[in-house]
Amino acid sequence: MSALSESLWRCYTHPASAAASTESNTEGWRRQQTREGFATVTEAIRSPHLVDEAGYLTVEYDPVQETAHRVGRALHAIGDQALTDAVVTDVEAEIGAVENAELGDLTGRAAQAVVLSRTDASPSQVAAADAVLDKDPLGGSELFRELEPTAAAIAAAHWLKAAADVTSDLSGIPAEQVVAAADDIEALPYRTPTAVLGLYPFADSPRSIIVEMISDAMLIAEGLAPADLDLAPGDEEADDEDEPVRLTLLDPSRPARDLLEDLLIGIHACRLLYAEYTDADDLTDEDDDIEDDRRDEIDEAFRVAVRARAVQDRGRLL
């Protein structure tokens, strides 16, 4: 049952739409065949392939189909119809959860998708993440509790660029360097958000940047190498050529959530630099002794400026 669930959810994390091609015998074609096999899973459980009179057993190449037949063979050996009915009901609920997640509905059983990395993103989930960041450009817990991490990362990349542009206008530091510059104020993991900002001139949208980074990390997690792999991304400062190189800036075991965390840290870094270059005398707070109030006022000014820039450039997100 665990193997079957894993195979079902792989259709969500590795959709055919994210493959390079869906022509016959390509990876995308195989993914599509697997996804279309959802309709036959319960039948495979109820009537699995069994060893025939000659001692042969038909084994399916498709992982979803084969794991369904394995569940069916175990139930056949047990021989309890009530148990079989209960398992089929549970599997139907799991399939429904995957289908709901594909549509961007992460309620109920589909909520498990919030911890999965996906090589695609639901437009409705991207819009929902954008709404969370519009409410507070520094982020919100809903990004981790209620939304696809890939979709949330796409929206966060858009807001990071807005924050970097606002901070660049104020400080004179190039937008792609503001997060790294903030590392002089507070130690933080700046390489990933800096890499994302550096890719904006070469990408048509934050979606293409984020999906490619996550897809590459997911390939590496499976022992595969992207065709255009950079053997040492982010290791330009390494002095020892014998040091291991990083194949990806992300944690391969959880790339989407790792990327989302780093992008939000990048927005925080922009806020730090924004505060560093803000002239407190230009703010409306007249009591110089109340540092917390001044900090809150600077933070609010940052939020307002970033929100306006994100709205102005929202076309790249859509």
Rank of each mutant, 00 (worst) to 15 (best):
D204N: 14
T167R: 10
P193Y: 05
A162W: 12
P174M: 14
A111P: 02
A180E: 12
D136Q: 07
A182M: 12
G140H: 05
A181P: 00
R145Q: 12
E148K: 00
A128Q: 14
S168Y: 03
A128S: 13
P137G: 04
F144P: 03
V115S: 09
P123V: 02
L160P: 00
V132Y: 05
E186Y: 15
H158T: 00
A152F: 02
Q125P: 07
A187C: 15
G140Q: 04
P201K: 08
V166F: 01
A153N: 03
R145A: 05
A121F: 04
Y190T: 12
P174K: 15
L138F: 12
T192F: 05
A162S: 13
Q112D: 09
P174E: 15
M218C: 07
D134R: 15
P201R: 10
L160V: 03
D165T: 10
S205R: 14
F144R: 13
D184M: 08
L170F: 03
P137T: 09
A131P: 10
A164P: 02
E186T: 15
A113L: 11
S117Q: 09
A151N: 03
A203N: 10
S208T: 01
A153Y: 00
V132Q: 06
Q112C: 09
A203W: 09
P193F: 06
A175D: 15
K161V: 03
S168T: 01
L219N: 05
A121E: 01
D134S: 12
W159I: 07
D120N: 07
A157W: 11
D169N: 14
A164W: 04
A157R: 09
L138E: 11
P123G: 03
A113G: 06
Q112T: 08
H158N: 04
F144S: 11
P201E: 11
D204Q: 13
A157H: 08
Y200L: 04
S171G: 04
I173D: 07
Y190I: 12
L219G: 05
V114N: 06
L147Y: 06
A217F: 07
H158A: 02
S168K: 00
L116V: 00
A131L: 14
A180Y: 06
L133R: 04
Q177L: 11
S117V: 13
S215W: 12
D204A: 15
A182E: 15
A156K: 06
A111K: 09
V114S: 05
D183K: 15
S168P: 01
D184P: 02
S168R: 00
A129T: 07
P189W: 13
